[in-house]
Design a protein around this nucleic acid. Structure first.
Lengths: 175, 175
DNA sequence: AAAATTTATATGAAAAAGAATTCTTTTATG
DNA sequence: CATAAAAGAATTCTTTTTCATATAAATTTT
C-alpha cells in the first residue's frame, strides 16, 4: 500500500467519513446485499418496487394502502401509483373495506402470486448464499446489530408509567 | 398478545418474511437511521442527493465523476445530472483532468463547503445520539456486523492461485 | 499505426417519484 | 346532532431518475 496516488478503490474501506459514518455504512451494506438480487429480478420481469409490494403481500395479503406504504418503506402517493401500474398489469387487485370506506385493501392476484413465487425462492437462496458461509456467531452478530438499530429508540422512556404503547408517535405537531 | 385481528403495527416486528429477511432488515435499519437526519437536511436547504455529494467531497475533494458515483452509490448518469444542478447552484465545480481528457474532477466550492458544514456537524451529532446510548459492546456488534456484510464476498476464492485481485469482474460477456 | 475496444462522461426522451393538495369518509367535540 | 378535525387514498403539477445511447478520448490489437 505505497502510493495513494489514484487507484481510488472501494470508498467504504478507504478511511475518512465514509468508512465510519453509520448511516453510510448501512446504506452501503444494504446496497451490497440487495444489488445482485435486484439485478436478478429482471429474470422475473419485476422492478424493485413491484418486488417489494409483491413480497410484502405474499407475507400479509390484503393490507391497506397505507400499511403497504409502511411495510415497503415508501410514501403513500408513491405506492398508490405503483399499485396503479401493478393493477393494470393484473398483479394485484384493489378491494374496498366495507367497514371504513376510506380504506382500500390490496390483494395479490393469482398472476401476481405466480409472478413472485420464483423471485421469493431466489431471494431465500440469495440470502442463504450470503449468510451460509458465515459462522453461527457471525449470523447472530448481524441479527443483533440490526435489531439494535431498528429498535434504537423504542426502549427509551426509562421508568415512566406504563408507556401505553408507542404506535405512530408524536401526533402533537400540527400541519 | 391476544388478537392479531388488525392493529397492523410495525411491519418489521410482526413475524413473517419482513422480520427475518436480511435485505429487508437492512433496508429498514438504513431508513430508520437516516430518516430523521434526512428531514433535518431541509434546514440547510439540501436534498438527500446533494447532501451525499457534498459529504463525499468533504471527505475526498476532487474526485472524478465516476468515483463520486461509486461513493454515493448512484449510477453515473444520475450524478452527472445532480452535478449539473449543484454546479448551477454554485456548490461544486467541474475541472478537467489534464492527463485524461475524458475525466472530470469535481471540486467543492467555498459556497458548497459553507453549505455542508452545519449538516456535517448535525450528522455527527445525530449519529452520536444513536450510538451514544448503546454500550461499547453493542456498538462493536454493529460495527462488526456491517463489516461482515460489506465485505461478505471479498474473502471468498479459497486457496486458488494468487487471484490477481478481483476488481470489476466478468468482462467475459459481450454486448 | 490504423482499427477495434474500452473507458469516462454527457444527453434525450420516457418513466417514475416528490410535494402539496383534494376528495371522501370517520371520528371527536361542543 | 352539527360541525370541526383527522385519516385514508387519489390526484395534479413539477422535478428527478432511468434507460439507452451518443461523444470523445484513451488503450489494445493486429
Amino acid at each position: 500500500m505505497a502510493k495513494p496516488l489514484r487507484e481510488s478503490r472501494d470508498p467504504a474501506t478507504r478511511g475518512g467519513f465514509a468508512s465510519t459514518y453509520l448511516a453510510y455504512l448501512l446504506a452501503r451494506a444494504s446496497h451490497i446485499v440487495s444489488e445482485e438480487f435486484h439485478l436478478a429480478l429482471k429474470n422475473w420481469k419485476l422492478s424493485v418496487p413491484f418486488w417489494r409490494v409483491l413480497a410484502s403481500l405474499s407475507d400479509a395479503n390484503g393490507m391497506s394502502v397505507s400499511d403497504l406504504a409502511a411495510m415497503t418503506i415508501m410514501k403513500q402517493p408513491r405506492i398508490t401509483k405503483i399499485l396503479d401500474r401493478m393493477e393494470a398489469d393484473g398483479l394485484v387487485a384493489r378491494r374496498a373495506d366495507r367497514h371504513d370506506r376510506r380504506r382500500v385493501f390490496i390483494d395479490l392476484t393469482d398472476k401476481g402470486r405466480r409472478r413472485v413465487a420464483p423471485a421469493l425462492a431466489a431471494a431465500k437462496a440469495h440470502e442463504a448464499s450470503i449468510l451460509g458461509p458465515l459462522s453461527e456467531s457471525e449470523r447472530a452478530t448481524i441479527k443483533r446489530a440490526l435489531d439494535l438499530l431498528i429498535h434504537y429508540r423504542e426502549d427509551v422512556a426509562p421508568k415512566a408509567a406504563k408507556a401505553p404503547r408507542r404506535g405512530k408517535a408524536a401526533p402533537k405537531v400540527k400541519a
